[in-house]
Structures are given as structure tokens and as C-alpha cells.
């Protein structure tokens, strides 16, 4: 997929100089239990600007739960998540809502409003920054928001389908529109929960390339949960391996060995 040139509005990434304080997302010691099932056992990780971080692990190892706890879509039992320097555990109500704007989420299911156009869907990414009276209908969205959404659609190569209803887009196209919406949100972090699970290999490759491009050219921190180790090894800068609610490795992708990846899924074969 030919990517449009990156916008110059964001600072270029310097992950090597980033410290834990500068990192847009720092998760520390997250515990989460559902009934008798301890899903997360003190998980911690740091996401830097300009970095594409992939989380690998078998079904049920806690990857998606971690992602939801990171932005308090689920409340963790213990531990903290600092987003944009603010500890989300200390916030509630409107403060939490506004703090969460720093993270945009791309879901596994195509989380678009199906009957609305691609452009309207992308504009909705900016809802957290639009006053209520200017957001009662899509026609009332401020001009700047529509412009930003147009740029975002161009960024993901979907400008020519701006007026197409979301329900008529293919899986790959819809996921790119969802990424444009995340981009329009002007967040510093994109969290993607298995964004390519429902896509064919080519569309999956395009979406991963796009996420990498947003990290490397726009300086966003991108954390993606994946089920495809090959995609993670090809596109991610760093890989976190999880097994039964714990991080078992966290290292740059070139250093991850096939045996380490294999070990993440070992217990599935044993059962």
C-alpha cells in the first residue's frame, strides 16, 4: 500500500533518549483477577514515543486484558498505568475521560459506526476535543476537525473513500479508517487489540506497515497485541512475550529467538 507522506506536525521520535518519565505509557505491576482466574500477575511495561511494541502470547494469557487495564476500560485490582505522565488510577469521571484522550484504541472488530461515512467516523475521533454544541450532528463538526479528518484519511490512503458508508468498506479498508480515526484523535499513544486478526495476509501487512509508519514517522507510541509472531518480528521494534498473565521476555525484536516465541505457545500443545 503506498503510504502518504507523513505530516510534519509531530516531533520526530528519539526512543533512545526517552526515559520512563517521558514515555507516554508506563504500566507497572498490574494485577487483574476475574473470579478465581488470576489473568494478570504484576505485569509492567513501558511504551516509548516512536516505537512499535508488539505483545505476543497465547489465547487467555492476558494480552487484551492488559490493554484494557492500561487505559482503565477495565479497573485493575492493583498496579498503576501512567498515560501522558498521569496516573489513571487516581482519576475519575471527567478527568479520567479527558486523560484517556491521550490513547487511541484500534479494536479487533471493526469498531466503526457502520451507517456513517468514513469521514464522519474519522471526525468522531476528535469528539473529546469538540464542545457539545458543535458535535450534536456530523454536520455541526468544526471545519478544523473535518480538515484534520481529511488529512488523516489521506494519511491512511483512504481519501477517495471519504463519503463511503463504513459498512461498504472491506475489512482492511475499515481497519485503516479506524486507524485514521485514532490519528484524528491526536493521541500520543495508539493501542491496537489484535488489529489484523480479521484480515487477509495482504491487508494485515498493510495495516502493520501503517502502524509502524505512524510510530516511526509521526512519533506515536504504538502498542499492538498480536497473534502473528511473523508480523511482530517483521514490523515491531520491541516484543513483549506473555505467558499465563506474566511477562516472560521484553526485548528488541531482532534479539527474540524462534524458541522464545515457540515457548509462549508451548503449554497449548501440551494440553
Amino acid at each position: 500500500m503506498p503510504l502518504q507522506p507523513a505530516l510534519g506536525s509531530r516531533s520526530s521520535p528519539e526512543p533512545s533518549r526517552a526515559s520512563a518519565l517521558d514515555a507516554p505509557l508506563v504500566i507497572d505491576g498490574i494485577h487483574k483477577r476475574f473470579g478465581a482466574n488470576q489473568v494478570l500477575k504484576g505485569v509492567g511495561l513501558k511504551l516509548d514515543r516512536g516505537e512499535l511494541l508488539a505483545v505476543l502470547g497465547a489465547n487467555g494469557c492476558g494480552k487484551s486484558t492488559l490493554l484494557r487495564c492500561a487505559i482503565r476500560l477495565l479497573d485493575p485490582d492493583a498496579g498503576s498505568s501512567r498515560l501522558g505522565g498521569r496516573d489513571l488510577a487516581l482519576l475519575k469521571g471527567k478527568e479520567l475521560r479527558l486523560a484517556r484522550r491521550e490513547a487511541a484504541v484500534v479494536f479487533q472488530q471493526i469498531a466503526l459506526v457502520k451507517r456513517r461515512s468514513a469521514l464522519d467516523n474519522v471526525c468522531c475521533g476528535a469528539l473529546g476535543r469538540i464542545p457539545l454544541r458543535r458535535s450534536l450532528t456530523p454536520a455541526a463538526f468544526p471545519h478544523e476537525v473535518v480538515q484534520r479528518a481529511t488529512i488523516a484519511l489521506q494519511r491512511v490512503g483512504m481519501l477517495d473513500r471519504a463519503w463511503q458508508p463504513a459498512q461498504t468498506l472491506s475489512g482492511g479498508q475499515a481497519q485503516r479508517v479506524a486507524i485514521a480515526r485514532a490519528y484524528c484523535q491526536q493521541a500520543s499513544v495508539i493501542l491496537a487489540d489484535e488489529p489484523v486478526s480479521a484480515l487477509d495476509p495482504r491487508a494485515a501487512e498493510e495495516v502493520m506497515t501503517l502502524l509502524g509508519d505512524l510510530a516511526h514517522n509521526d512519533g506515536l507510541g504504538v502498542l499492538t497485541v498480536l497473534h502473528q509472531p511473523d508480523l511482530a518480528l517483521r514490523h515491531a521494534d520491541r516484543i513483549v512475550g506473555m505467558r499465563v498473565g506474566e511477562v516472560v521476555f521484553d526485548k528488541p525484536s531482532p534479539e527474540v529467538t524462534p524458541q522464545e516465541v515457540d515457548a509462549l505457545y508451548q503449554h497449548l500443545r501440551e494440553t
Binding site: I71, R100, A104, A111, Q185
Partner: peptide
């Protein structure tokens, strides 16, 4: 969920 995370009221 996507709009909630985007900070929408």
C-alpha cells in the same frame, strides 16, 4: 468503546 476512549462525553 472506541469513542469513549477518544474522550467523547
Amino acid at each position: 468503546d472506541a469513542l469513549r476512549v477518544a474522550g467523547a462525553s
